[in-house]
Design a protein around this nucleic acid. Structure first.
Length: 753
DNA sequence: AGTGCTAGGT
């Protein structure tokens, strides 16, 4: 009957072996390799082609492109022709799998097979090219096609608009109108959806005008399309006008405009609109809830949000993920983490957005370890709810925890799962590696970016700033500018920080003075504070004071804190006293206002005044932060405080420290206080360094990386230099402000910090 | 049609 036979020699090679049910599996025994005579095949050609084509269609629909192509070839060899419908399905498969190479091959075959393919089939090819991202191919075909219909134009216009080639899209569109062809209404909505930024406003208004002329504005979806277009193009006045003129205001219209206000930072206006919506008795839907809650969140309007929560509860929508998730986020933004957790419990099926809100909530609460813990447990139980947002938050958590061990693993995991958010995720990675002391890795991430945005540049620049690589940071800044990037306020903070860490007073002043004129970024008090810091660190205290008096802002707590810091570094008691008073007045909670004057008084031997500072602190229930250092070994973190004897290897650690006894003698020589002399020997950073020396076990290639919560103490800084010299080990200490990289008795900070 | 994320000093 048929030439189709089961052949044992035909072993399916590309059918994947899966453990799951194989209900979608395609039988691979359909073969054209036949031992029967070819004469018989001619007789039943018609019937035979049907079956083969059916198989080809089935393979295409299941996305088995390689097998389909193999089968295609066999059909070819057997002289069985491929039907137009098969071509259509094959093109669809190429489109879905984004396989341009297969698509091109197929297109060539199609040209050979049919002299005059139908417009319909040509449109399939066109669509395939567009969706595979090759507008060039699509363009070429479009020009070659002898006959075009509305669908061909719609395809091209959609593709042009989608890729941002507005001129071309609009050109085709007007050509379509000019030729008298009536575009389908979906054409309008498609085109409107592609207008997503202020640059497209002009085109959008033209379309709007055209819609008005042709009376299409009565079409509800076009009308809402215009409203949303104005929102995206940032013209809220226009959006409001469209809204006001609507005969029937559906919830979509309300939410559209409310989203516009919220995104523009006009949450109050969004809430006003919401009140109107309530008074007009418009029915709410889950979208209304999410926008209102977002507006409440940005204003931290706990009260109103709680009322909305009550409505949600009344309507029994708490378990609904689309309502519960914005509610969770609202409570998190209002710092009511407990309420957020309660709401979260009620959601019956939390999705990835819900989880990302929870994890970013932990980060906002500075519960970074909890964030990582939650991430890990999700990762093992239900990895499907992890998305690029969550990974971005986790990178942030790892950067704060300075844990590049787990951070690196999660980075690798994110690569495997393609879940590194472009720009956001990458910038977070740059910061993570920079703050973990892996500038090389940060560099690699930066280099790998297609289009580093200003955030990425700033993150990388800050990375260099932490290391005291001022020249590299400034070089990067200039390079960034020459690449056409526009620096912003944060960028200048990074630039000024770089100058500060390297003592580049003149340079710092130069950037502060030119940022407005040359880069059109208005300096804020934060920038002035950076400059005070630069002066104060450099010991130019009089300059700093003069600068503070003349700057266009009232000095804030930070201004005085920077100044006070410099007073301590450069041992100026008189100015330090003044600065301390100012700081205590502006921010009585800041311990620096007591601790630094205390240090100064003790240094000057003014014990009574020093005691007074301690008394003040105690009265105000303030506690000096305990100094603590930590180091990672084989993924485990070892923490130390002053004089710590809790570590299981305590004995070895102190033995190790004894090896540097000679150095300590010299150390004591520099010390003025008996009490401090005793403490110096077991400062937390020394314990960590000693532990590091024990655990690296002679492997000098990896630097010993120690992290500290406060600023490095000068004596320990000397100690680290000494250790790096005698042992040949590189030592990195990241204190609360920056990195110190010790090599052969020298520190990267050049003793300036 | 909506909700979730990135760069900063002391």
């Amino acid at each position: 009957m048929t030439i189709l036979t089961v052949q044992s020699s035909y072993i399916p090679s590309r059918v994947p072996v899966t453990k799951n049910s194989n209900f979608d599996q395609i039988p691979s025994w359909v073969s054209l390799k036949s031992s029967t005579s070819s004469s018989s095949s001619v007789k039943i050609e018609h019937k035979q082609g049907q079956v083969e084509n059916l198989h080809l269609v089935s393979l295409s629909k299941n996305g088995k492109l390689n097998e389909a192509f193999e089968f295609f070839q066999e059909m070819d060899k057997a002289g069985v022709s491929v039907s137009p419908y098969s071509y259509q399905c094959l093109f669809e498969a190429c489109r879905n799998l984004k396989s341009l190479s297969h698509g091109r091959l197929l297109h060539d075959r199609m040209r050979m097979a049919f002299e005059n393919p139908s417009v319909f089939l040509q449109n399939c090819v066109l669509q395939m090219y567009c969706e595979c991202g090759s507008l060039e191919d699509a363009d070429k075909l479009f020009d070659e096609m002898p006959e075009l219909n509305a669908a061909s134009r719609v395809t091209m216009i959609t593709a042009y608009a989608g890729q941002g080639f507005l001129d071309k899209a609009v050109g085709l569109f007007s050509g379509m109108l000019a030729s008298g062809e009536k575009p389908p209404s979906s054409m309008y909505t498609t085109l409107l959806k592609s207008l997503v930024n202020p640059r497209s406003l002009n085109v959008g208004r033209q379309i709007h005008a055209h819609v008005m002329r042709t009376g299409l504005c009565s079409n509800a979806s076009i009308e809402i399309g215009i409203l949303n277009m104005y929102v995206k193009c940032g013209w809220l006045v226009g959006a409001k006008r469209v809204f006001d003129q609507m005969a029937v205001k559906k919830p979509v219209a309300w939410t559209g405009l409310m989203v516009g206000y919220t995104q523009a930072g006009r949450a109050r206006d969004a809430l006003k609109l919401f009140v109107d919506l309530v008074t007009e008795g418009v029915e709410w839907d889950s979208f209304v809830f999410s926008v209102v809650l977002k507006a409440c969140a940005s204003l931290e309007e706990l009260n109103l949000g709680q009322q909305i929560h009550a409505c949600v509860a009344k309507l029994g929508l708490e378990s609904e993920v689309s309502v519960g998730t914005p509610l969770v986020d609202f409570y998190i933004k209002c710092s009511s983490f407990e309420s957020a957790c309660r709401v979260f419990q009620e959601i019956s099926e939390p999705n990835d957005v819900t989880w990302s809100a929870i994890i970013s909530g932990y980060c906002q609460m500075s519960q970074f370890e909890e964030a990582v813990k939650t991430f890990k447990s999700l990762r093992s139980k239900n990895a499907a709810v992890l998305n690029s947002f969550t990974y971005t938050s986790i990178f942030q958590a790892c950067s704060v925890l300075a844990d590049c061990n787990i951070g690196g693993q999660i980075h690798a995991d994110a690569i495997k799962r393609s879940l590194i958010g472009s720009q956001y995720g990458e910038s977070a990675l740059i910061t993570m590696y920079s703050k973990c002391g892996c500038l090389d890795d940060a560099h690699e991430v930066f280099e790998s970016m297609d289009n580093p945005d200003i955030v990425a540049w700033t993150a990388f620049l800050s990375g260099h700033a932490y290391y005291g690589n001022a020249s590299e940071a400034l070089r990067l800044f200039e390079k960034m500018v020459s690449c056409g990037m526009k620096p912003n306020s944060v960028t200048f903070i990074a630039v000024l920080t770089a100058c500060s860490h390297a003592g580049l007073v003149e340079q710092g002043r130069h950037y502060l003075d030119t940022m407005l004129r040359k880069y059109n970024v208005a300096p804020t008090i934060d920038h002035y504070d950076c400059m005070i810091d630069i002066y104060a660190r450099a010991g130019l205290l009089d300059e700093a004071l003069k600068f503070m008096k003349n700057m266009p802002f009232q000095p804030d707590a930070m201004s005085w804190k920077c100044f006070l810091s410099g007073c301590w570094t450069h041992k100026n008691l008189e100015l330090g006293k003044i600065a301390g008073e100012e700081l205590r007045q502006l921010d009585p909670e800041d311990t620096a206002g007591y601790v630094l004057p205390f240090n100064l008084f003790t240094w000057a031997g003014k014990w009574e005044e020093a005691a007074e500072m301690m008394k003040l602190m105690n009265e105000r229930m303030l506690k000096k932060e305990l100094s603590c250092s930590w180091i990672q070994e084989k993924g485990k973190i070892h923490r130390f405080i002053v004089g710590d004897k809790h570590h299981p290897q305590t004995r070895e650690i102190y033995e190790k420290l004894k090896e540097f006894d000679g150095f300590m003698e010299g150390d004591m020589f520099q010390c003025s206080m008996t009490e401090r002399r005793e403490q110096l020997l077991d400062h937390s950073e020394r314990l960590a360094i000693a532990f590091g020396l024990i655990s690296v076990n002679g492997n000098a290639r990896e630097p010993i990386k120690v992290f500290k919560n406060l600023r490095a103490c000068p004596d320990c800084h000397e100690f680290a230099k000494h250790v790096s010299l005698v042992t040949g080990h590189e030592i990195v200490i990241r204190d609360s402000r920056r990195f110190h990289h010790f090599r052969e008795g020298k520190c990267s900070c050049n003793d300036y910090w």
